[in-house]
């Protein structure tokens, strides 16, 4: 019984949140990895791309709530998501046209493109703060929980509760749908295959008559979709704050690198590895040990490895370790 209680505590505070957070990171890392694979540079502006798409979703959500549109118990943001995606595609394609295309034509080295993307980051950063402000925005409406902790206790008779938020389950379901659609596209459609071919061997793709500009455009569209979905899910689950999205860049890059840059499967696995490590390293295990150990062995401290302030240190350490010992990542990817 005590073991079960310990498991419920773990599920409630680690497994469920990490699955949701992992899905969000995986979607973000997928976008990063696609840019690396096809455009061959690390896109530092990916966090801002997410924030921009999410910002439009929020603005549309406000508009919908103002005119009384709602899909209760689901959050209104889901209704606004397609508009966010369209807005994000527009900004990303414009950025490509006015910034990256120039460097691509000049055949610049990847590091030049990375620096260009850093510039794009700062401009987008300013734009977002100018439009929606630097503060916290909560835009999750609709029902809060699928199972409340208290209901779980009364239902099962356990002493510990297990809460599952609506946003967490939406995150998981949406992530599965988006990832399945992406893999179907990459592996089954002609355009998707030409993207993989271009990413694999640029020169041979040219010899086969694959149009690089088209591949690049489609990649950006997919990246914008992934970024907006990831950003919106993260914002629904937590809150939207421009700076937090910039900070998300680190765990997302760590996820992409851990999985192997340019490898979509790797990005997903990497996302979950980073999410589970961040949360399990910063969780206070006191309650779990109290259940598992004999009564007089119960720990008096919090049994927390790291304070939650250090969660970025966890992803950073994993990033460094992977780069030191396995630079191509867990799955076959490009080395950085």
């Amino acid at each position: 019984m005590d073991i079960l209680h310990a498991l419920i505590v773990l599920a409630n505070f680690i497994i469920v949140p990490a699955i949701a957070y992992g899905s969000q990171l995986a979607l973000g890392a997928l976008g990063i990895t696609l840019v690396v694979g096809v455009l061959r540079f690390s896109n530092f502006a990916h966090g801002e791309t997410m924030a921009f798409g999410t910002m439009i979703v929020i603005l549309m959500t406000w508009l919908f709530t103002a005119i009384g549109l709602s899909i209760y118990p689901l959050p209104t943001a889901l209704l606004a998501l397609p508009f966010g995606i369209i807005g994000c595609i527009a900004i990303v394609l414009l950025t490509d046209k006015f910034v990256y295309k120039f460097y691509r034509k000049a055949k610049s080295t990847p590091v030049v493109l990375v620096m260009a993307s850093l510039g794009v980051t700062f401009i987008m950063n300013g734009l977002i703060r100018f439009i929606i402000g630097p503060g916290d925005q909560r835009f999750a409406d609709g029902a809060r929980f699928i199972i409340k902790a208290r209901d779980f206790k009364t239902m099962t008779g356990f002493k510990e509760g297990l809460a599952i938020k609506v946003t967490q389950s939406i995150t998981l379901v949406t992530a599965i749908i988006v990832v399945a659609a992406l893999f179907w596209f990459l592996n089954k459609t002609r355009t998707g295959k030409s993207m993989r071919a271009y990413s694999d061997n640029e020169d041979l793709a040219l010899l086969s008559g694959i149009n690089p500009e088209r591949v690049v455009m489609i990649t950006w569209i997919i990246v914008a979709i992934l970024a907006t979905v990831a950003g919106t899910l993260y914002g629904l689950d937590k809150t939207f704050k421009p700076f937090t999205y910039f900070q998300l860049l680190l765990p997302m890059f760590a996820a992409a690198v851990v999985g192997g840059l340019g490898n979509p499967v790797g990005a997903i696995v990497g996302g979950f590895i980073i999410a589970f490590s961040e949360i399990s390293f910063t969780y206070a295990y006191k309650k779990v040990f109290t259940y598992l150990l004999p009564a007089d062995w119960a720990p008096t401290s919090l049994v927390q490895l790291l304070s939650t302030d250090y969660k970025f240190a966890v992803s950073f350490s994993i990033l460094v370790l992977v780069l030191l010992f396995r630079p191509t990542g867990l799955f076959k990817g490009q080395s950085t």
């Binding site: 295959k193 030409s194 071919a197 061997n201 020169d203 041979l204 793709a205 086969s208 694959i210």
Partner: peptide, 21 residues
């Protein structure tokens, strides 16, 4: 070409399909 004349990460069938792009 002499070197790098296939798409290594694509299946044989996909290589042929890309040839006919």
């Amino acid at each position: 070409p002499q070197n790098q004349n296939i798409f290594t990460s694509l299946s044989v069938e996909e290589n042929l399909e890309m040839g006919a792009f």
